[in-house]
Write a protein that binds this DNA or RNA. Structure first.
Lengths: 223, 223
DNA sequence: AATATATGATAGTATTACTATTAATAAAGA
DNA sequence: TCTTTATTAATAGTAATACTATCATATATT
């Protein structure tokens, strides 16, 4: 069966030339995802990317102002994709509680299968989100960038799930804190489980991260 | 009244020459805290630090291998200090629940007053922990560094508070995940409240971060 | 065939994150 | 007091980074 082709549209502030408008642009995006995963964001450079794809540093700069801009683009893409997943998966659910648990699961689960989009590997992108996304928004330029809408898609996801929280319990005082805590927390836990395991209680094959956060959310808003 | 003078001892892997052993060393530490706050970690350099303190880049390298090593040193110092605060504040408490709430408060509260140690400004250091500490452990070298004990003091704090969680509820399955989620969460919330406020529900003067996490912890482990 | 557009190649710049060497100075021991 | 040692300062140098600028070439469109 053919996969559903959904188009994710990215705010034009996030690139100088739209990478979706050319083969080179798509190659830049897909290969940067691989290379950031392999090298880590610090060691990743446009020069290395150019070599890898048989193109030139200067050509890459025509699409993205800087490697930071590229990272922000990837993060924005990721959150648009997550939003789509949440909307799609909760559309047919009647119970707010089911909606909430579905959303929390999407936000906290591991991503392993290949997905809808041809040139973006969501599994690798998810790893970048875990390991590198804090580097995007812990910048001195955060306020300026935020004003330009760089983090809009992330904020939209938090807002959407916070709204579901309020459907479940309209009295709950801290829906945004809860959801952003869960999102960031799940990413930290996945990273810690690999590198600083004593900060977690992750056990192979038990899906503890998803269980922990689903449980935490329900207990926090329902008692 | 004189302040209590506690000495925080730092693992000798975290420096090449102990900064506490000289005036220059202390100056390096205290001024780096100011400068990292002002410039952000990326724009902070040993050259600039040297200029600021009327010393030379090469002299600073004798104390710390790299600016990354200096950041790790500061983080380690911070967690030793937090551990001391927790031990001190919970020593006289009989109830495990009180101990837990005291510890969670220490981990999530804002730090505003000047404190015990002469040459380290804990208020500024706390800000560095919030804005820069993820950059220390989201590195490609994390496993190697972890093995050398670079993150020991952080892990000790998580372990200590997790033990209190288990005193309150010995059946609770995820004490480490809960505490590391709370610690990282509180830091994110403080940062978000300033720069991405729609991700939080922080209201001036209401101490919502501390309230939210204390409430979350109790509900999660007691229901 | 002419023109516009996208890409490639090359060169150049200021800065960074160091390393290495040597000189000057201060403290400590004989 | 003289000498040794330790500490810090000064200078120079390096490879790499994160760009910018310019110009040439290939490809597509009219």
């Amino acid at each position: 069966m053919d996969k559903l082709q959904i188009h994710i549209v990215i705010n034009s502030n996030l690139y100088t030339k739209n990478p979706e408008s050319s083969e080179l642009g798509k190659k830049i995006v897909s290969t940067s995802i691989e290379m950031i995963n392999d090298l880590g964001f610090e060691s990743f450079t446009f020069k290395k990317l150019g070599n890898q794809i048989g193109s030139n540093e200067s050509s890459i700069y025509r699409y993205f102002d800087s490697k930071h801009a590229l990272l922000v683009y990837l993060i924005s893409w990721y959150w648009s994709w997550i939003e789509y997943k949440i909307v799609f998966s909760t559309a047919n659910l009647n119970s707010s509680k089911d909606k909430l648990l579905t959303a929390i699961t999407i936000l906290t689960e591991d991503i392993t299968e290949d997905n809808t989009f041809s040139y973006i590997d969501e599994t690798l992108l998810h790893k970048i989100i875990i390991s590198e996304s804090a580097k995007a928004y812990y910048t001195k330029d955060i306020d300026e960038e935020n004003q330009k809408g760089f983090y809009k898609t992330y904020k939209k996801v938090v807002q959407r799930v916070s709204d579901i929280v309020l459907e479940v319990n309209p009295e709950f005082e801290f829906p945004h804190m809860l959801i952003s805590t869960v999102i960031e927390g799940a990413h930290h836990q996945r990273y810690f489980s690999k590198h600083l395991p004593s900060l977690t209680d992750v056990v192979e094959g038990k899906n503890n991260i998803v269980r922990f956060y689903n449980d935490l959310v329900l207990k926090t808003i329902l008692t």
